[in-house]
């Protein structure tokens, strides 16, 4: 299981992957907004999306697990 945490405090703009999706390393899984800038969060490895814990509009911190891959 690979947990993807938010790299910084921010607001979720969009979730770009859903449970069951196959993602490759460096695919965009979530887009955050912080400092008036959109920050894309990329998958650290290949895998299948096992959980999506957030939705658009959520405020997340560096402890929030956004998405988990298996």
């Amino acid at each position: 299981m690979v947990q993807i945490c938010a790299p910084m405090v921010g607001k979720v703009v969009s979730v770009d992957a859903k449970v069951g999706d196959q993602v490759k390393k460096n695919d965009v899984v979530v887009t955050l907004e912080a400092m008036k800038m959109q920050i894309k969060v990329y998958a650290p490895s290949d895998g299948e999306v096992a959980e999506v814990n957030i939705g658009a509009g959520d405020v997340v911190s560096t402890e929030t697990v956004l998405v988990a891959l298996k």
Partner: peptide, 25 residues
Amino acid sequence: PMAARVVHNMGTEANPQNYLMMHAM
């Protein structure tokens, strides 16, 4: 924060796993 944003983008361009935004702040 524009300079930090530019730095962040340069970092992500070199390596998508690289989030420099807060470090650059």
